[in-house]
């Protein structure tokens, strides 16, 4: 132990590390390893058979593609919302600021039902889309809408403080050196907020992958088209196929882990480039 312990003025290294490991074990590692143990009862062949099933592959594809799309939309519009909240003063700003967090507070099933009602072909919003032959509810597009809704706060809340930290002076300096608005954003502001934007994106993405409650109401849940992987897990559970359910969960977990790890690596790489 002692060779890992660098000398530090902060006391309680052993205690803090011990607590961290215990806590992580209880909350994260033990449940996750239970998942792996249950899956292991299938054996490699059984596992492979479940996760490469045509319907499972389709569901995984729907989950990751819609989650990615929602995270991209959130990154873009979340950035704009954060920008407006940081840079401008307008009446009702505090209310708008509070509104951003609402998707966190609302039970996701409620959100799903409301969105499904609004975006249904005869709903308030859905009828306008239907007039242009665009179906939102009960298609993958509807899933993206639901996932965008629940993921909105992540990007806004991660970018907002970092953007507020970019001093106006830095922008003035860039302008006095002859930089146009686009150059100022591209060369000065964006590099500063990029790591936070990536974090927000990763959080929104991860949240969307695991989302169940809001999606099932708006998705229509048609196999191969708008059926998400978490729904398939629930379906397996209802058929008492516990090992099959955990196998899909393990597959999702591994893919998510690989994706989040690569986002982290990207972040590490860009922050090293930034010299911080």
């Amino acid at each position: 132990m002692s060779q890992f312990k660098a000398h530090s003025v902060l006391p309680g290294f052993n205690l803090a590390l011990g607590f961290t490991l215990l806590y992580l074990s209880l909350i994260v590692l033990i449940p996750l390893s239970a998942l792996f143990f249950k899956t292991a009862t299938l054996g490699w062949g059984g596992f492979w058979e479940v996760v490469t099933g045509e319907r499972v592959l389709a569901a995984l594809r729907v989950t990751f593609v819609t989650s990615f799309a929602a995270a991209v939309i959130n990154a873009l519009f979340g950035l704009i919302v954060a920008w407006v909240l940081v840079r401008y003063r307008f009446p009702g700003k505090r209310i708008v600021d509070a509104l951003v967090d609402l998707p966190f507070a609302l039970p996701t099933a409620v959100a799903g039902i409301v969105l499904a009602t609004l975006y249904a072909p005869n709903g308030w919003l859905g009828q306008h889309f239907a007039a242009h032959d665009i179906k939102v509810a009960y298609t993958p597009l509807g899933i993206v809408v639901a996932l965008t809704f629940i993921g909105l706060p992540f990007v806004v809340r991660t970018v907002q403080p970092v953007l507020a930290d970019v001093e106006a002076e830095v922008e003035e300096a860039a302008a006095s050196l002859g930089a146009g608005r686009w150059d100022v954003f591209r060369r000065v502001i964006f590099p500063a907020i990029y790591p936070a934007l990536l974090t927000g994106f990763a959080l929104a993405f991860a949240r969307a992958i695991g989302e169940y409650g809001s999606v099932i109401f708006i998705a229509g849940n048609m196999p191969y088209i708008s059926e998400i992987a978490p729904l398939l897990i629930v379906a397996k559970l209802e058929q008492y196929d516990y090992a099959g359910a955990t196998a899909i969960a393990v597959a999702m977990l591994l893919i998510s882990f690989a994706l989040l790890l690569s986002i982290n690596a990207l972040q590490w790489w860009s922050s090293r480039r930034g010299g911080r």
């Binding site: 001093e167 002076e169 830095v170 003035e172 300096a173 860039a174 302008a175 006095s176 050196l177 002859g178 930089a179 146009g180 060369r187 000065v188 590099p191 500063a192 480039r273 930034g274 010299g275 911080r276």
Partner: peptide, 22 residues
Amino acid sequence: RDARERNVGFVFQHYALFRHMT
């Protein structure tokens, strides 16, 4: 004329350097 068109160099009290650039 805009700041960027005045051809004026400006030095700030707190430097205002671009911290992500060398």
